[in-house]
C-alpha cells in the first residue's frame, strides 16, 4: 500500500510540475543552457556579471529600468566602492524640491548626481513616458525579469539571440520584429545587440552570443542577488539536518526496540 501511495503522490507532484511547463504560452520553448548559478553549488561569476552590467548599462538601460537595484548593489558584483560611486555620480536622479519649492525649472525636473543609496536611474519618468517613446509598447522592468518569465535566463538569452527574418507569409505589423521565442512571435523591441557595439573592460570580444550570455547572467543576479548565500547556507543546513535526522532515526529504533 505504501508504494501505491508514494506513486500517487509523486504522480501528483509531477502533474503539477507539468502544468508549469505546459502552460508556457505561444512562443517557442527556449533551449536549456548551463549557468554558473545552476544546481546545488550554484554561484556567481563576478567577471561575467560585470560584463553583463556593461551590456545592461550601455544597451538595455536606455529603455529598460531596473527598479529594484541600488548603485550600492554594484559592490556585490565586484566593483569597488569608489567605482560604484563613480558610476552613480555619472547618472542623475530627480533632486526633489529646491529652496523655492520647485521640482522643475523651465519644464524639466531638477536633477542631482546619484548616490550609492539611490536606486538605479530610470530611463523614463513614468510608464506613460515610456510608452510614448516606444510606439505605445512598455519596456518591462528588468530587475526581476528572470523570475517573472517562464524559462528564466534561458528565455532571455533565447530572446536576445532569436531575432530572424519572418518566415514567408508571416504578417509582421509595422514597427515590429520577428522573434521565435516571443509569445505571438512579434516583438516591439528591435534586435538590441549588435556585434562590437560595446567594448568590455576585460578585453572579451563583444559578440552577440557573448553579450546575450553575460547580460542574462547579470539579470539572474539582479533577480536573485541572494542566490549564492542561499545555496551555500542550504548545503550546510541540509548536511546538518541529514545528520540530525539520522540520529533521530537511530534513537527511534532504540526506543521502539522493546515494543511488541
Amino acid at each position: 500500500m505504501k508504494t501505491q501511495v508514494l506513486a500517487a503522490i509523486l504522480g501528483g507532484l509531477l502533474a503539477f510540475g507539468a502544468i508549469q511547463a505546459a502552460s508556457a504560452a505561444e512562443g517557442q520553448a527556449a533551449p536549456k543552457l548551463k549557468w554558473t548559478t545552476d544546481g546545488v553549488t550554484g554561484h556567481f561569476d563576478r567577471a561575467e556579471l560585470k560584463r553583463g552590467w556593461t551590456v545592461y548599462k550601455q544597451v538595455c538601460a536606455s529603455c529598460h529600468s531596473a527598479h529594484q537595484l541600488y548603485y550600492r548593489n554594484l559592490t556585490d558584483i565586484g566593483f569597488s566602492e569608489a567605482e560604484a560611486k563613480a558610476i552613480a555620480a555619472g547618472d542623475s536622479v530627480p533632486a526633489g524640491p529646491n529652496e523655492a519649492g520647485e521640482t522643475h525649472v523651465d519644464g524639466s525636473p531638477i536633477m542631482r548626481p546619484a548616490l550609492l543609496s539611490d536606486k538605479l536611474a530610470a530611463p523614463y519618468a513614468n510608464a506613460n513616458a515610456a510608452r510614448a517613446a516606444n510606439n505605445g509598447a512598455l519596456p518591462p522592468d528588468l530587475s526581476l525579469i528572470t523570475k517573472a518569465r517562464k524559462g528564466g535566463a534561458d528565455y532571455i538569452h533565447a530572446l536576445l539571440t532569436g531575432y530572424k527574418e519572418p518566415p514567408a507569409g508571416f504578417q509582421l505589423q509595422q514597427g515590429m520584429a520577428f522573434n521565435a521565442y516571443f509569445p505571438g512571435f512579434q516583438i516591439a523591441m528591435p534586435a538590441p545587440l549588435v556585434e562590437g557595439a560595446i567594448s568590455f573592460d576585460d578585453g572579451t570580444n563583444a559578440t552577440v552570443a557573448q553579450m546575450a550570455r553575460d547580460v542574462s547572467a547579470f539579470l539572474i543576479w539582479s533577480a536573485e542577488p541572494e542566490l549564492e548565500d542561499r545555496k551555500r547556507m542550504g548545503i550546510k543546513i541540509l548536511a546538518f539536518l541529514l545528520v540530525f535526522t539520522a540520529l533521530l532515526y537511530a534513537l527511534k529504533r532504540k526506543i521502539w526496540a522493546d515494543v511488541h
Binding site: 546545488v40 547556507m233 542550504g234 543546513i237 539536518l241 540530525f244 535526522t245 532515526y249 527511534k252 521502539w256
Partner: peptide, 22 residues
C-alpha cells in the same frame, strides 16, 4: 521520538525546496 524523526525528514524536504527551488 517518532514525530521528531518525521519532522527531520519533513524539514529536509521543506528546506530543500526553500534553499534550492524556492
Amino acid at each position: 521520538i517518532k514525530d521528531s524523526f518525521g519532522l527531520g525528514v519533513f524539514l529536509i524536504v521543506y528546506l530543500g525546496f526553500t534553499f534550492f527551488a524556492p
